[in-house]
Structure formats: structure tokens, C-alpha cells
């Protein structure tokens, strides 16, 4: 890497794309307790829809709307059989869905270029006569624009009465249905929104990288997104974005560290092993994540808040 700034900007762009994925998973898992272990499938479908449409010379706006629609519909269709059951059934269905989707994309060469994938995807915003660095900055502006939009959409939803229903479903489905809420309907809607958001992130990813192939969408991607949400703090959208930055930074620095220290390890293996150890450590010692969910913020007098913080720290020390 000749230009360290470029490496940094690339990391920032990646973190933005993964931030969108992380927010979408947070919406599903953090607020509604839907264990979607197939995030990579929707990310991949979004990327491929954008890539295929782009090779047919459609503009990015059309591609991303189509990506959102298709991933949303696939999300609903595949989640229907599992949503009425416990969360482990959804997890199993989704983790296997990712494999089946990859199987289809690898085998149907006429549709998606098989194992070679699709290359030459046009970027979303083309302004002729710019340097590489300027184009990268435009990309980052686009990605962060969408990230911020997704953040505000999610915040609006979860702070509304609708969001309170979701949190009730997360805590106890029986209570939600006792109050006459159709739990199943809410879950399907959340899944559709979450999947569509991942599809959008996939579209951004495809136009940013310019090429897609099935090997980019390994289950490790899903695991990284889960890592971001769990590390950042479930049910906290800022935490999800923070988690995306931290995991991206962690993965990049583990790669750099390997280069500088000249360790006799494969960078991918090292990265995955360290990520796995980190996630297990977080689940062990800080299961609520770095940023906790804000329940009734800024209520009560100051000494009450301090007292509750003190109790939190005490209980945390006792547990670890």
C-alpha cells in the first residue's frame, strides 16, 4: 500500500458499508430479538442485483431500489416458515440460506457469471476528470449519506410507538400478543426492513468495489456483522456504528500487525481467529456491549443516575 491515506479512506468506506449492515442487524436482533445468521445472503443478493442491473446499463438509483425490493421480498419469503418458531430455528434457516444462495450464484453462470463473478460495475456517481483520491471521497460521502439516512430511519422507528411494540416482543412475546398485537406480522415487517437495508448495503458495496464474486460473501461476513452489534451494544444504533468502526479497525490492524511483525501466519486465518476470540470474550465479560441500551434517558435526579451507574459497575465487577 503506497499511500497510507488511501488505506485509511478505504477502511472508512468499508466501515460505513458495514455500519449500514450493523444497523440493520441491530434493528432485527437488538430491538426484536430475531437471530438472523444469514445477513451475508441478503448482502450478496443486493450486491448481485446491483451488479447485474449495472451491466445492463441502468443507473444506480434504479439498481438500489430494485435491490431493496428483491432482498425485502426474499427476506420475507424465507423467514416465513421460521418466524412463528423459536429464534434458534430462524438462525438455522438463515445460516443455511446463505449457503444455498451462494450455491445458486456459483452454478448459474448465465445469471451471475458463476465463480468468476461480475466485474466492471459502474460507480454510482461518475464525474469525469477526477483523481482516484477525489473519487474515493465522493464514494465516502455517498456511503455516509446513506448510513446517516438509515440511522435516522431506524431511530425514528424504534422511538415511535411501533418501536415500543418491537421491544415488548423482544422481552416477552406473550405480553405483546396479550395486548392484541400481531407478533408474527411485526416480525415479518422487521425482517423485511432489515433485509432490504442489507440489500442496499450490498448495492453500495458492489458499486464501490466494482466487482463481485461468490468468494466475497463467506459466512465470516455474517459473523463480523454480529460481532459489530454485540461489541457495540445491542439495541443501540450508535453502538452498532461504533461496533462497525471497531471491528473494521481491528481487522485491518490485525492485518497490518501481521505485516510489521512478520508473523508466520496467514493474515485471513489470524484475523478470523482473533475476531472469534474477541467475540467469545465479549459474550463472556460484557454481554450487553460497550454502549448499553438507553432506557428512559435523562429521567430522575442526578444522584439517582450516579447511584444506578455505581450499581451497574458493582454488578459488572461481581460478574467478571
Amino acid at each position: 500500500m503506497a499511500d497510507p491515506l488511501m488505506y485509511l479512506l478505504d477502511a472508512v468506506a468499508y466501515a460505513g458499508i458495514f455500519g449500514i449492515l450493523s444497523i440493520s442487524l441491530n434493528f432485527e436482533y437488538g430491538y426484536t430479538n430475531l437471530a438472523n445468521f444469514g445477513k451475508v445472503a441478503f448482502f450478496m443478493i443486493g450486491a448481485y442485483v446491483t451488479a447485474i442491473m449495472s451491466s445492463l446499463k441502468y443507473p444506480f438509483i434504479v439498481n438500489s431500489i430494485l435491490a431493496i425490493l428483491i432482498t425485502g421480498v426474499i427476506g420475507v419469503l424465507t423467514s416465513l416458515p421460521a418466524l412463528r418458531l423459536k429464534e434458534d430455528f430462524l438462525a438455522i434457516t438463515m445460516i443455511t440460506l446463505g449457503e444455498v444462495m451462494k450455491l445458486i450464484i456459483k452454478n448459474e453462470e448465465w445469471l451471475a457469471g458463476g465463480v468468476w463473478g461480475i466485474s466492471g460495475i459502474a460507480p454510482a456517481i461518475v464525474i469525469p476528470g477526477l483523481t482516484f483520491r477525489e473519487r474515493l471521497i465522493i464514494q465516502i460521502a455517498l456511503i455516509y449519506g446513506i448510513l446517516i439516512a438509515c440511522y435516522f430511519i431506524c431511530e425514528l422507528i424504534v422511538k415511535s410507538p411501533y418501536g415500543r411494540v418491537l421491544k415488548t416482543i423482544r422481552e416477552d412475546e406473550l405480553i405483546a400478543s396479550t395486548y392484541g398485537k400481531n407478533v408474527f406480522k411485526y416480525k415479518v415487517q422487521v425482517f423485511a426492513v432489515g433485509s432490504a437495508m442489507s440489500g442496499l448495503a450490498g448495492g453500495l458495496f458492489a458499486q464501490y468495489i466494482g466487482t463481485v464474486n461468490p468468494y466475497m460473501f463467506e459466512p465470516t461476513v455474517t459473523f463480523a456483522i454480529w460481532m459489530m452489534v454485540i461489541l457495540g451494544g445491542p439495541a443501540n444504533n450508535l453502538g452498532a456504528i461504533l461496533g462497525a468502526f471497531m471491528v473494521e479497525g481491528f481487522q485491518r490492524s490485525s492485518r497490518l500487525l501481521k505485516d510489521y511483525l512478520n508473523l508466520p501466519l496467514d493474515p485471513v486465518n489470524l484475523q478470523v481467529m482473533l475476531t472469534a476470540i474477541l467475540v467469545i470474550t465479549v459474550v463472556f465479560y460484557r454481554p450487553q456491549g460497550l454502549l448499553k441500551e438507553k432506557i428512559k434517558p435523562y429521567e430522575g435526579s442526578l444522584h439517582k443516575i450516579i447511584a444506578s451507574k455505581f450499581m451497574e459497575v458493582k454488578s459488572w465487577i461481581r460478574r467478571s
Binding site: 445468521f37 475476531t275 459474550v283
Partner: peptide, 22 residues
């Protein structure tokens, strides 16, 4: 929670597999 158990089992799986690959 159930989800945390599942996540850590996926983590353990990756740890074993990439250790073997290494």
C-alpha cells in the same frame, strides 16, 4: 441468552477451522 450461545458456538467453529487451516 440463546443468541449469545449460538454466536459463541459460531465463533468457536471459526476458531477451530482456521486453526486447522493455519
Amino acid at each position: 441468552s440463546l443468541v449469545h450461545l449460538m454466536v459463541s458456538s459460531i465463533g468457536l467453529g471459526f476458531l477451530i477451522r482456521h486453526f486447522l487451516m493455519q
